[in-house]
Amino acid sequence: MTVIESPRTPARPAPKRGVNLEKWGWIYMRASGVVLVVLVFGHLFVNLMVGEGVKAIDFGFVGGKWADPFWQWWDVLMLWLALIHGANGMRTIVSDYTNPGTVQRILKGALLLSTIVLLVLGTLVVFTFDPCPAGSPAELLPSFCPAA
């Protein structure tokens, strides 16, 4: 029989006072996961299964969806929940496979930085989106644009 050695990293007791961030991270993974099942499955169903599926996606399709605040908020909520869930999961994996030190700090810093940049970018994209940009070919625009 193969003998597996006990893990080398001893368990660190949770701090006795103040907020236990690791515990809240653990809770966040579960709470966001439950909501993400609905958001992501809904996203995939509307974009891949309804009508022509992926073949129907173009600029006009996005314009049509984001004309409705319902889908704007759906996408923004999905963006924040999924990206923070994914980045926090990646942080767990980095902690598992690297020792504390420079490499670990760089990897975690890169995760944090890319997450913040993409959260800002993705949120701005949804709320500053212009479905009818001036000077674009009419046939590429959603049907409700004056130029189309």
Binding site: I57, D58, F59, G60, V62, L79, A82, L83, G86, A87, G89, M90, I93, S114, L118, L121, G122, L124, V125, T128, F129, D130, P133, S136, P137, L140, L141
Partner: peptide, 30 residues
């Protein structure tokens, strides 16, 4: 989990092309 995470990074960038131009977005989503 890792695979979906890396897809999501790219996916937010490709969706952001709607702020560049309809042509740019359609070319990539094509």
């Amino acid at each position: 989990g890792v695979a979906i995470f890396f897809f999501l990074l790219v996916h937010i960038l490709d969706t952001a092309l709607v702020r560049v131009s309809p042509e740019a977005y359609n070319a990539v989503i094509g």
